[in-house]
């Protein structure tokens, strides 16, 4: 497998624990600048812990996390956001009693308001006209799909170089899933690297360049999306954990 030559994010032998539970076991990832990389695996395999380790919500017990060549594993979350990592959280996690606009403001929290705020807002509104329509509405009253758009818009407001997405398709109807994945592609084409946890393996592999497969906290497979799609073992075990009928 071809490792990217210009990594933006690297995990080097990361071990993370919750109490006595060993959740990530010697995990290594390399995410190249400009890539979409998917992280696959079942529930409780360590996917969300990976996201939390990147964002600094949990700290690894050992190993290094590099962003842009700098060690970030001991940095506070706010510093990581400032350096250009933004999350799209599992189940959206908007601030439910704030307006859409205030949620977007929160996305830009680490940046001084003058610095291109209006420009970024414009970009989000262009990407999601729906979000502009709803900007005064309380976020908790939006539909699931609208919330996901706001969540992605909120991440963009940080003007990130890397977006970490935790199950962007969760709970969305197929129509919205397609829209969301189109947007992800579009954002990536504009130069933002995407690291995405997805349970929906086929979907994730269809837009990713490369992917890692996580099982009980260990990386058991990695490769280009194309290779993984065609790997019969992967088809059997991870492609949405459903087989494509008649082997497509």
């Amino acid at each position: 497998m071809s490792e990217p030559t210009d990594p933006i994010l690297e995990f080097q032998a990361v071990n993370t624990y919750y109490g006595d539970l060993h959740v990530l076991k010697n995990v290594c990832y390399t995410i190249g600048r400009g890539e979409i990389v998917s992280l696959l695996g079942g529930n409780a395999s360590g996917k969300s812990t990976t996201m939390k380790t990147i964002m600094g919500v949990v700290r690894p017990a050992s190993g290094r996390v590099l962003f842009d060549g700098a060690e970030i594993q001991d940095m506070p979350t706010s510093e990581r956001v400032r350096r250009g990592i933004a999350p799209v959280l599992e189940a959206r996690r908007l601030f439910p009693r704030m307006t859409v606009y205030e949620n977007l403001e929160m996305g830009a929290y680490t940046r001084p308001k003058g610095a291109g705020f209006a420009q970024d807002l414009e970009r989000v509104y262009t990407l999601f006209p729906r979000v502009q329509e709803r900007r005064g509405q309380i976020a908790g009253t939006l539909s699931g799909g609208e919330q996901q758009m706001v969540a992605i818009g909120r991440a963009l407001m940080a003007r990130p170089r890397l977006i970490c997405m935790d199950e962007p398709s969760m709970g969305l109807s197929p129509l919205y899933v397609e829209q969301v994945f189109d947007i992800i592609r579009h954002i990536n084409a504009q130069g933002t690297t995407i690291f995405m946890v997805e349970q929906n393996a086929s979907m994730a592999l269809s837009i990713a360049h490369r992917a890692y497969v996580l099982q009980t906290g260990q990386v058991v497979l990695s490769g280009t999306a194309k290779d993984l799609r065609e790997n019969p073992a992967i088809r059997e075990a991870y492609l949405g954990e459903l087989q494509v009928p008649g082997a497509a």
């Binding site: 899933v177 397609e178 994945f181 929906n200 492609l239």
Partner: peptide, 8 residues
Amino acid sequence: RAYLGRAV
């Protein structure tokens, strides 16, 4: 469709 989405 529900499970696998467009790709499949």
